[in-house]
C-alpha cells in the first residue's frame, strides 16, 4: 500500500475514512453506498460488508480511501457542464424525419 493510502492513519488516532461502492449484481456497475472507518483495506472491506450488505444488497464491494478521491469543484460546475446545454443536436430528437420514413 502506498504512503498516500495510509498517511493519515499514521498521524491521526482516528481510523481513516473509506468510500464504499457496491455492485448489486453482475451486469451493473458499482455504485456509491456510503463510507466506513477502518485501519486498513481488509478491515474496510469487512466493515463495508457488515454496514452496507446486510440484506443481499450486493455481490461485490470496492473500498477506496476517501482522501484519494478527486472531485470536481461545484464552483466550476457551470464551466464544466453548461457547454453541453446548447448542443441539443447531440440528441436524436433534434432531427425531424418525415412520418413515412421508417426504421430510423
Amino acid at each position: 500500500m502506498s504512503k498516500a493510502l495510509t498517511g493519515k492513519a499514521l498521524t491521526s488516532k482516528e481510523w481513516p475514512l473509506w468510500e464504499v461502492f457496491v455492485r448489486a449484481k453482475n451486469g451493473l456497475s458499482h455504485k456509491h453506498a456510503g463510507s466506513v472507518h477502518a485501519a486498513d483495506a481488509r478491515m474496510a472491506l469487512e466493515a463495508a460488508r457488515d454496514t452496507y450488505t446486510r440484506r443481499m444488497e450486493g455481490i461485490s464491494l470496492w473500498v477506496v480511501p476517501s482522501a484519494s478521491i478527486v472531485a470536481s469543484d461545484p464552483g466550476e460546475a457551470a464551466a464544466l457542464f453548461e457547454p453541453a446545454s446548447d448542443k441539443v443536436y447531440r440528441h436524436p430528437t433534434f432531427y425531424v424525419i418525415p412520418d413515412n420514413v421508417k426504421n430510423i
Binding site: 500500500m1 504512503k3 495510509t6 492513519a9 488516532k13 481510523w15 485501519a39 486498513d40 478491515m43
Partner: peptide, 17 residues
C-alpha cells in the same frame, strides 16, 4: 483495539514500503 489496528496497519505499510 483501535490503537492496535492502527499500529498493525502502519507496520504493514512500512514493511511494504
Amino acid at each position: 483495539v483501535r490503537e492496535a489496528a492502527l499500529a498493525h496497519a502502519a507496520k504493514r505499510a512500512q514493511r511494504m514500503a
